[in-house]
Computed example of a mutant assay.
Amino acid sequence: MGRKRSKSTHLTIKDAELDRISCLPGHVIDQILSLMPIKEAVRTSVLSSSWRNKWYTLPNLVFNKHCISVAASKYTSVINNKFLRIVDHVLLQHSGPINKFMLSDNENCLIRVCDVSDVHRWVLHLSRRSIKELLLHFWLDKRYKIPLSLFSCQSLRHLSLSCCQLKLPTTFEGFKNLQYLHLEEVTLAQDDFENMISGCPLLDHLVLMKIDGFSQINVHAPNLSTFQFYGKFEDISFQNSSQIYTVYVDLSIYLNSKSNQSKLHGCSSNLLKFFAHQPHIQFLEIGYYFLKYLAADDVPVKLPAPCISLCELSLCINFNDLKEISAALCLLRSSPNLKKLEIFVSI
């Protein structure tokens, strides 16, 4: 009897040691799954009963080229079909809250123009799941129109879109919880842009890259702290956005329109106009065309109010242009607490 008890006890301990993966605490399993590509996370369901349904509640869903096996990489149609099935399968099986949904196709092999209806269906599904972070990054031959269901996602805190058209519905009341907005190669009208920004009272970080549809950048965002811009513009103005401390405007194309700037803004200096509304700027990067914009019309020797918060300044200067040199000197004279200065020479 003693030997049998000893043997039974020995087998139980040995089995427990061999199946340590099933004994992991739930929060540890969740952490492991969160660090894995979605394809591998789904495969863990075969490990044991405690892992079988764990991936159903993954809060962050990222779909990219890593979802597809290497064996299918030579056939675009196979890749596309498998990718669509994977996204559909995951969303159908998923039962927990979805905090983040990211669709990334940088190599243009996962999503095609004919798949836009699938994307619309996914967005509609997500709009009913209190999604907090939505990133749609894929490039098509023509820009797809964002479905109206997106504008009902009042739980959104982070929104990043590329290669699309935005048309606000008449019932749009803003994204009341949105803090981060990134628009790249997006087409939208001037009024829609301004209504969208003003309808985001908590917006903190705004990134605009190659926006089409307008070139007058008017930003009305009381809590905006960081503004990044790359693209064409005639004028940039910030109203009710005095909390900005980081501005990055680089490699832009300044469309010179001197004919109506002074009349519209009642100010003969873009430099004065820009800094009059930005008392808290701490980090400022000025690309070649933006400096050209700031140097347009009259350039003062010094700003009326010093930029006392400005501690880091980056400039791209054409030293053959006296107006740009004057604008740069004005900034330097007006920045008594500057700690870091970068100057790039434009040729």
Rank of each mutant, 00 (worst) to 15 (best):
Ile29Thr: 11
Gln93Ile: 15
Asn64Leu: 03
Thr44Trp: 01
Lys100Met: 07
Arg143Lys: 15
Ser69Leu: 13
Trp51Ser: 06
Val119Ser: 04
Val90Lys: 00
Arg3Leu: 08
Leu92Asn: 06
Ser69Pro: 04
Ala72Gln: 03
His120Cys: 15
Ser49Val: 09
His125Pro: 03
Ser149Met: 06
Lys142Gly: 05
Val90Pro: 00
Val62Tyr: 09
Ser69Lys: 08
Val62Leu: 10
Met1Asn: 11
Thr9Phe: 14
Ile13Cys: 05
Tyr144Leu: 07
Ile111Thr: 03
Ser6Pro: 02
Val42Gly: 02
Ser34Arg: 07
Leu136Asp: 02
Gln31Met: 11
Asp115Asn: 15
His89Tyr: 08
Ser130Val: 04
Leu33Thr: 08
Leu134Ala: 02
Ser22Thr: 09
Leu135Pro: 06
Leu24Gly: 06
Ser104Trp: 01
Ser45His: 06
Lys145Ala: 03
Asp30Cys: 11
Arg52Val: 07
Trp51Thr: 08
Arg20Gly: 15
Leu135Lys: 13
Lys82Trp: 05
Asn106Asp: 13
Gly26Ser: 10
Gln31His: 13
Met1Gln: 13
Arg128Gln: 15
Leu58Trp: 01
Met36Asp: 05
Arg20Ser: 11
Lys132Tyr: 02
Pro147Asn: 02
Phe83Val: 01
Val78Phe: 05
Asn80Ala: 04
His120Tyr: 12
Ile111Asn: 01
Ser48Trp: 03
Leu148Tyr: 09
Glu40Trp: 00
Leu126Gly: 03
His137Gln: 09
Val28Gln: 06
Arg129Thr: 05
Trp51Cys: 11
His94Glu: 02
Leu135Met: 06
Ser73Val: 12
Leu84Ile: 14
Val87Thr: 04
Trp122Glu: 03
Leu91His: 05
Pro25His: 05
Lys4Pro: 05
Trp55Ser: 01
Asn81Leu: 08
Gly26Gln: 13
Tyr75Met: 13
Thr57His: 04
Arg128Trp: 07
Leu135Phe: 13
Leu11Gln: 14
Gly96Cys: 09
Trp51Pro: 03
Ile38Phe: 01
Thr9Cys: 09
Val28Leu: 14
Arg129Phe: 06
Ser8Pro: 00
Glu17Met: 15
Ile32Asn: 12
Leu126Ala: 09
Leu103Thr: 00
Leu84Glu: 09
Asp118Ile: 09
Asp105Pro: 00
Arg52Tyr: 07
Leu103Ser: 02
Tyr144Met: 07
Leu110Gly: 08
Val70Ile: 15
Gln31Cys: 08
Ile29Tyr: 04
Ile21Phe: 10
Val62Trp: 03
Lys7Glu: 10
Arg43Pro: 01
His125Gln: 11
Arg3Gln: 12
Thr57Tyr: 03
Arg121His: 10
Pro37Val: 01
Met1Lys: 05
Lys82Glu: 14
Met1Cys: 14
Asp19Leu: 13
Leu33Val: 05
Tyr75Leu: 12
Gly96Thr: 08
Lys74Gln: 14
Ala71Asp: 15
Ser117Gly: 07
Pro59Ala: 07
Asn106Glu: 11
Asp15Trp: 09
Lys142Gln: 15
Leu103Tyr: 02
Arg43Met: 04
Lys39Leu: 07
Gly96Ile: 12
Ile38Trp: 00
Ile32Cys: 07
Ser127Gln: 08
Ile86His: 01
Leu134Trp: 00
Val42Ser: 04
Ser73Gln: 08
Ser22Cys: 09
Ile79Met: 11
Asp19Asn: 13
Cys109Phe: 13
Arg3Glu: 12
Val70Gly: 06
Arg43Ala: 05
Leu18Asn: 09
Lys54Pro: 05
Trp122Leu: 06
Arg129Cys: 13
Asp141Asn: 12
Cys109Pro: 01
Lys14Pro: 00
Lys132Asp: 04
